[in-house]
Nucleic acid binder design. Structure first.
Lengths: 136, 136
DNA sequence: TTAAACTTTGCAATTGAGTTGCAGTATATT
DNA sequence: AATATACTGCAACTCAATTGCAAAGTTTAA
């Protein structure tokens, strides 16, 4: 039986190479979205630029989507089944300015935003910054 | 009569030095929030680190507030009268992924976000990315 | 089955924004 | 004026992201 990571790559039309499988498997194993650096540190023997390029390929083929969560680093998360990387698949993030931890605020829906005529939304990053319960 | 920039600095308790007056004047002359680079290019004979430190001082003394608008660069805008740099003073931004222009979406209020117990909001950056009318 | 073409990878180097150390200059204080 | 304090400019550094390039791996086609 084929491994999940490989399965996903195949379905999304991405050639399942060694690095790509490792990167995707790493993302699947972690609930929270991960930065390039997180992945680099998790996969200690894999080159950063190879991971970087895997992530770019994944993004293009909608295997993952990227998130700006206020940390200053781009984070990546595996697209859930049926995800079309639309804002409704997203949620607010809370970034603690003291401990630098990012929380997902899953209880708040992202409202529908009225855009001017002929503006097309592709993605949204909604970040609240402040102090978390441990730091305030 | 004292110039506006100087006036503001005096009121906010910031020593009105040459660089600071130039930086604040530059921000006052531009409706859109400006990045460090924008200001550096606007004030061609002023050192980047001096501008940078002016902005940090301004932020600390609530002369300006900073905004992450999706461009990847921190932008600065003069605090309007009565601004306490709270989320309600902010608005959504729309960043066009093709032409890299940032629009302010002034028609959409930022909703009240329910935070978990003991979380304190300091600031919010709400960015929608996509294609603007000229690029779609 | 071997050569050519294409893809992927690892390393090193570069970019770009932000930030800091330090010494010189300017301003304020006594 | 002498000293202390604040500000500025330059150069250097950080840190994440990104690119160039050649080597290694894989696929295609003669």
């Amino acid at each position: 039986m084929m491994e999940k990571a490989e399965e996903i790559l195949k379905v999304k039309g991405v050639n399942p190479t060694a690095v790509r499988i490792l990167v995707l498997r790493y993302l699947l194993e972690h609930l929270k979205s991960q930065s390039l650096k997180d992945i680099e540190e998790g996969l200690m023997h894999t080159d950063r630029s190879s991971i970087f390029r895997s992530l770019k390929t994944f993004e293009e083929k909608k295997v993952v989507h990227s998130i700006e969560d206020g940390s200053g680093m781009i984070k990546y998360a595996v697209c859930p089944t049926g995800c079309n990387c639309d804002p409704q698949d997203l949620h607010y993030h809370f970034y603690c300015t003291k401990c630098s931890y990012t929380y997902c605020l899953l209880d708040n829906p992202i409202p529908i935003i009225k855009l001017p005529q002929n503006f097309k939304m592709q993605r949204a990053n909604m970040v609240v910054k402040g102090l978390c319960n441990k730091c305030s």
